[in-house]
C-alpha cells in the first residue's frame, strides 16, 4: 500500500497542480501538437524497428544454445540499466558524423543521423528494444516446445512452425512487449537529446518539449506532462483491454 502511494503521489500532484483552465489553449498550440505527433510517430516507428530487429534476436537468445549465450543475453539487456544519456553518447560515437560507423554513412551515402527524426527513432529503438526482446525471449523460452514438435510431425517447415504456432502462442507477450517498448520510446529523453538534439518539429519530442518548457514556464510543463500521462494511460488501458479479451483460454 505504501508502495502504491509512493508511485501514485507524484502523479496525483501532477493532476492537482495542472492548470486545467489553460489546458485547452495549450493543446491547440501547434508546437505542442507537433511535439506530440512527433513523439507518437517516433515511438511507433521505434516499436516497429524493435519488432523487426528484436523478435529474431529474442528467438536466437531463447533457442540457440551456445557457450557465451548468457553473456550475449546480458549485453542485450545493457540498455535497460544504462543511463539513457550514456546510450546517447555511445550512439553519437558510433553513428555520429564522425562516429565509428557514422563517418562512412556520411561519406558513402551522405547520411547523417544526429539531428534528424531518424536519429530520434534510432535513439528510441536503442533504449526501448531490450524491453521487447526480454519479454519475447521469456515467452519463447517458456513457450510449449511440444506444440512446435507436434507441428513438425504434421509436416510443418521451420517457417510454418514459427508463423502458425510459435508466433500465435507468444502473441500476448509480443503485444505486451510492444506496448512496453512503445511506452518506453514515448518517454525517451536522455538518449534522444544527446544523440538527436533538440529542434521543434524535427527532434523535439514531448519529453524534450516538457523539459524546455519547465525552465521558462513550469505551468505549461505541468500541462504538457499531463498530456503525455493521459496519452500513455489511454493507450495502455486500450491495449490491455484488447489483449485480455483476446485470450479467453488463460
Amino acid at each position: 500500500m505504501i508502495g502504491f502511494a509512493f508511485l501514485m503521489l507524484p502523479l496525483v500532484a501532477l493532476l492537482i497542480r495542472a492548470p486545467w483552465s489553460g489546458l485547452g489553449s495549450l493543446l491547440s498550440n501547434s508546437e505542442v501538437l507537433t511535439a506530440l505527433r512527433l513523439s507518437i510517430e517516433c515511438a511507433t516507428a521505434a516499436t516497429l524497428a524493435s519488432l523487426i530487429l528484436g523478435v529474431p534476436l529474442a528467438w536466437m537468445l531463447a533457442r540457440i544454445h551456445l557457450p557465451g549465450m548468457g553473456l550475449l543475453r546480458a549485453l542485450v539487456t545493457l540498455p535497460l540499466v544504462l543511463p539513457p544519456v550514456v546510450g546517447g553518447i555511445a550512439l553519437l560515437l558510433a553513428l555520429g558524423r564522425r562516429g565509428v560507423v557514422g563517418r562512412y554513412l556520411d561519406q558513402w551515402f551522405g547520411l547523417t543521423l544526429p539531428f534528424t527524426t531518424a536519429g530520434v527513432i534510432v535513439a528510441e529503438t536503442f533504449v526501448a528494444m531490450p524491453f521487447l526482446v526480454v519479454t519475447v525471449e521469456g515467452a519463447l523460452r517458456s513457450a510449449d516446445r511440444d506444440l512446435e514438435e507436434a507441428a513438425v510431425t504434421l509436416g510443418a517447415s521451420r517457417t510454418t512452425v514459427f508463423g502458425r504456432i510459435t508466433l500465435p502462442l507468444i502473441a500476448p507477450s509480443l503485444l505486451a512487449g510492444s506496448v512496453l517498448c512503445w511506452a518506453r520510446a514515448l518517454g525517451e529523453f536522455g538518449a534522444t537529446i544527446t544523440f538527436a538534439g533538440n529542434l521543434p518539429g524535427t527532434t523535439q519530442t514531448m519529453p524534450l518539449k516538457i523539459y524546455n518548457a519547465f525552465e521558462t514556464d513550469p505551468e505549461a510543463a505541468t500541462a504538457l506532462s499531463l498530456v503525455l500521462l493521459l496519452v500513455a494511460v489511454i493507450i495502455l488501458a486500450a491495449l490491455r483491454d484488447r489483449w485480455l479479451r483476446g485470450s479467453p483460454s488463460a
Binding site: 510449449d144 511440444d146 506444440l147 514438435e149 507436434a150 507441428a151 513438425v152 510431425t153 504434421l154 509436416g155 510443418a156 517447415s157 504456432i165
Partner: peptide, 16 residues
C-alpha cells in the same frame, strides 16, 4: 520429421 509420412498422437495430444 516434417518430411516423413507419419502421424503422431502424443501423450497429452498437443492440440494447438
Amino acid at each position: 520429421s516434417d518430411q516423413r509420412p507419419i502421424g503422431v498422437v502424443f501423450q497429452n495430444y498437443r492440440l494447438f
